[in-house]
């Protein structure tokens, strides 16, 4: 059942991503991107990361994409203008992206067992022993709830980087305001 739902979401994600990059209109592209993000949120749920899924919907599909749409409409470039590059560029793109897919598609067959076997170099490695941290995290989630499972490392182990991101966001705000102002 889980796998079927996964593949449904995966198909939606891939198709809408493809449409996103092929749509002439920037508005449609943005909307297809929103679709991709929603289906990714569904996949996050399937992978047991419900909190991330919620944030994905709120921040990405909500805030960021609204910002995009807002800018598109502000600049009034929503209507279609041909903006695909020349045929030589299209050919190069097909080749490069094709190679990229071929290289990355090998990941398709990976399971925790095979990953453990490759990392340790022995075919009979026990994935449970190797990936004990993942087990512990799942038990933590089971004990403290989904939010607690994320919050504990975020505010304990990664507290300093977390605080650093607040500085990053502040500077991004200042930067965006300065850049967007007509006259400084």
């Amino acid at each position: 059942m889980t796998e079927v739902v996964f593949y449904v979401f995966a198909t939606i994600a891939v198709v809408s991503a493809a449409l996103c990059i092929l749509q002439r209109s920037a508005v449609s592209a943005a909307l297809w991107l929103v679709t991709t993000m929603f289906s990714l949120a569904g996949i996050y749920v399937l992978l047991g990361a419900q909190f991330i899924a919620a944030v994905q919907v709120l921040v990405y599909a909500g805030a960021v994409m609204v910002l995009f749409l807002f800018v598109i409409m502000l600049l009034n470039i929503g209507h279609s203008t041909p903006d695909l590059r020349g045929s030589s560029m299209v050919g190069a793109t097909v080749v490069v992206v094709g190679l990229l897919v071929v290289e990355l598609a090998t990941l398709w067959r990976y399971t925790p067992r095979r990953l453990a076997a490759e990392i340790t170099g022995t075919p009979l490695a026990n994935p449970a022993a190797l990936f004990a941290a993942g087990q512990a995290a799942q038990q933590e989630t089971a004990a403290r709830g989904v939010v607690g499972g994320v919050a504990a490392p975020l505010f304990q182990q990664y507290l300093v980087p977390f605080e650093a991101t607040s500085v990053l966001l502040l500077s991004a705000i200042v930067g965006a305001v300065v850049l967007a102002k007509r006259k400084v």
Binding site: F6, A10, V14, L104, W108, R109, L115
Partner: peptide
């Protein structure tokens, strides 16, 4: 679903690259 997730990620990433190029 480890392998399929990674593969999906790869395809989406490649589509993103294609979009930037195109």
């Amino acid at each position: 679903l480890l392998g399929p997730s990674l593969a999906l990620s790869a395809i989406l990433f490649s589509l993103g690259v294609a979009g930037v190029l195109l």
